[in-house]
Amino acid sequence: MSLVWAIMRRDMLASLRRGSEWSNPLIFFVMVCALFPLGIGPDPKQLAVLAPGILWVVALLASMLATDSLFRSDFDDASLEQVLLSGSPLFPQVLAKTLAHWCMTGLPLSLVSPLLGVLLQLPTSGMWALLLSLAIGTVVLSVIGAIGAALTVGLRKGGLLLSLIVLPLYIPVLIFGSSAVQTAVEGASYTPQLALLGALLLGAIALAPLAIGAALRISVDQ
């Protein structure tokens, strides 16, 4: 447990001091959401219909853009080698790194999402569903994205390849996430969708770190 905490602390401290790592996805999220009323037109009814999908797709893209940096700086400054050679099991290490990354990207995204919901005329009945589905869903996005980031970290320009690997895997999260918000707007219970997101989350946390660890070993082996 102290291992997990030490890794999360170090990553979050570094990310806080650097600033761009947590602020860029957030600014991207806000700016792209602000573009939609300009592009579609300010009709509240039309925006309200599209809002759940827009918010979820943009949050998904923001999370994916942030994923590229997950292992990049560790790879560049060779601290990844220290991680692989530490003799401690990789599973808790990569899980801690991914969770720290989520705390700096996915969590702030979820927290500002109700504000952007107001901007996009999302009915108030959908706010809680938006916040909760994003909070759970972005963890899954971070964990899945970490597999792609680990696979592409050894490449000079892995950005586009990363999105090709990761986007298809994001589809189930997007379906259940935006459907939770839509259902809440219609006034029905959105618990089933949240439960499915939760199941995806548990599955991802249980299995993805194995893939991330193996991918990191391959990326460093050159």
Partner: peptide, 24 residues
């Protein structure tokens, strides 16, 4: 190895705390 394995924005103390934690 060749790389320093240090986070530039962190202090030596914070960097070494992390490496110590990795080694248990």
């Amino acid at each position: 190895g060749h790389g320093a394995g240090l986070k530039a924005v962190l202090s030596p103390l914070e960097n070494l705390r992390w490496s110590c934690a990795l080694r248990g």
